[in-house]
Write a protein that binds this DNA or RNA. Sequence first.
DNA 1: TATTGTTATACTCTATAACTATA
DNA 2: TATAGTTATAGAGTATAACAATA
Lengths: 168, 168
Amino acid sequence: MAAQRHYDELARQLSAFGAVKRDMARILPHDCPAGSAAVLTLLERYGDMRMSKLAELLAVDMSVASRHVAHAADRGWIERLPDPADKRSRILTLTAEGHERMEDLAVRTTQLLAVRLSDWSDDEVGQLIALMSRLRDSFGDCRTTTSRGHVPVAAEASAAVQTTRTPA
Amino acid sequence: MAAQRHYDELARQLSAFGAVKRDMARILPHDCPAGSAAVLTLLERYGDMRMSKLAELLAVDMSVASRHVAHAADRGWIERLPDPADKRSRILTLTAEGHERMEDLAVRTTQLLAVRLSDWSDDEVGQLIALMSRLRDSFGDCRTTTSRGHVPVAAEASAAVQTTRTPA
DNA sequence: TATTGTTATACTCTATAACTATA
DNA sequence: TATAGTTATAGAGTATAACAATA
């Protein structure tokens, strides 16, 4: 259990962390907001998937994911193919244009981070990633796993305090 | 310099990190959105200050800070006193009601984090805070509006990782 | 002229709820 | 009835620009 004096500081860091995200978003093309970029990134990384799965990875409501997907689909970056196994569902897949767009996004991201993280060691970045990932996990946000070792978090979290697990 | 393979992963973590902030925001009182809560927190922590300083600490434009401050002032949580040294400026200060509100916020935050971080050690939380602080610092040089005295954001956190400020 | 702060406007992101079409 | 996905609506957060008052 962490000391209480750390709680306020962590909350403060989270509060001001948005500035980092906004700086990242500033380098995006004008027709590709952060939401769409996230959709493309996840599709390239994890391959074709359904809406519900994408929403889970994005850590947002499916209605939000649907909106981002519609934006990307309108621009021809992704396609929503019918799912032969379930006619209610749709399979999302990157188009050739989508892959091109992703290439562009990757270049922009790399260029920005190469500047911002110029005095970070590889190990330091790795540590930050690991801790951020674990925090998301502790908050029940890590529905997927970049690796196979997914640890369910609801169990140990609810041990300390009887908490309402997002009751509807 | 960090390896390129880490760049995409860090961008992905940042992208999905919003879910953590939203979970934190969910425990706030209905009349106190996250923006107002951040204002109260900073005023209690660093004491009375001017709008420009607050905006810097919030890492947002002053127009945004002004909006949050107006919300808090409308509810009697803070006061905007005239600055005798500069009649354009206003000194922000917490009222008694503001302190009460802060007490409530601190309790809510502590309760939530006690659950979420139940399996984190004190040192691990400190490491995360230090790395987040340093990342904000690495991104901070690009958007400083008033690069006067920079408040030591990571005062207590710098124990684990030494933050480096590259002078403009 | 430059700076401090406010306000008007517009845009992004988000969740809730109502809706459809399947299951 | 229940589930997958879409859309309409409302709310929070943000930046830009125009503005007023003061330096």
